[in-house]
Amino acid sequence: MPDWAWTLTGVAGGLLLCWGALVAALWRARPDELRARELLRLLPDVVRLVRRLAADRTLPRGVRVRLWLLLGYLALPVDLVPDVIPVIGFADDAVAVAVVLRSVVRRAGAGAVDRHWPGTAAGLAALRRATRLPG
């Protein structure tokens, strides 16, 4: 076998190993059924929240860039973990939202999320519980 084939095989194996580690980490950190159900119910409000935060020029540029990248990731039909895989199929989206919103709160404060939340107070409380946001 030529050298380039060994290299290609090694790279493909490494990528497959990294993907497997990601799936295992998502399985371990998967949201419980209650949190996942809450997040799915809140999805329209969460998307509007992320859009409003991304358009807020008072937030730091790096925060807005992360939010736009999150919107792009959520809009893409291709995920790191396909949605057809039970339980963890949607976990990658939920984890991505939680990580980005936590970073927004760290940089911009919890007031930014409160200010732009389009839903009810109960919905905001559910979002805080589901993503473990301080507040």
Rank of each mutant, 00 (worst) to 15 (best):
M1D: 08
M1V: 12
M1Q: 05
D3C: 02
D3W: 12
A5F: 14
A5N: 07
A5W: 07
A5G: 06
T7C: 11
L8W: 04
L8Q: 12
L8R: 02
L8F: 11
V11T: 15
V11N: 15
A12Y: 04
G13V: 02
G14N: 06
L15F: 14
L15Q: 05
L15G: 15
L16G: 11
C18V: 12
C18N: 01
W19P: 04
G20A: 15
A21F: 10
A21V: 03
L22R: 00
V23Y: 08
A24D: 10
A25D: 12
A25E: 03
L26V: 09
L26G: 04
W27H: 08
R28C: 05
R28P: 01
R30N: 01
P31L: 15
P31W: 10
D32L: 10
D32T: 13
D32A: 15
E38P: 01
L39Y: 07
P44D: 03
D45E: 04
V46P: 00
V46Q: 04
V47A: 12
R48A: 15
L49N: 01
L49F: 03
R51C: 09
R52G: 11
A54K: 05
A54W: 02
A54I: 00
A55M: 11
D56W: 06
D56K: 01
D56Q: 03
D56E: 04
L59I: 12
P60D: 06
P60R: 09
R61V: 11
R64V: 09
V65A: 08
V65L: 04
R66Q: 15
L67I: 13
L67N: 01
L69A: 03
G72W: 03
Y73H: 09
Y73V: 11
L74F: 03
P77C: 03
P77W: 09
V78A: 12
D79P: 07
V81D: 04
P82W: 07
D83K: 12
I85V: 14
I85G: 01
P86N: 13
P86S: 12
V87K: 05
I88R: 02
I88H: 03
I88C: 08
G89S: 05
F90A: 13
A91C: 00
A94K: 15
A94V: 11
A94G: 10
A96E: 06
A98S: 15
V99M: 07
V100F: 07
V100T: 13
V100Y: 05
V100D: 00
V100I: 13
L101M: 14
L101A: 12
S103Y: 05
V104N: 08
V105M: 00
V105Q: 14
R106N: 09
R107C: 00
A108M: 11
A108E: 10
G109P: 07
A112C: 05
V113K: 06
V113M: 07
W117I: 12
T120W: 08
A122F: 07
L127Q: 06
L127R: 01
R128V: 07
R129H: 11
P134N: 05
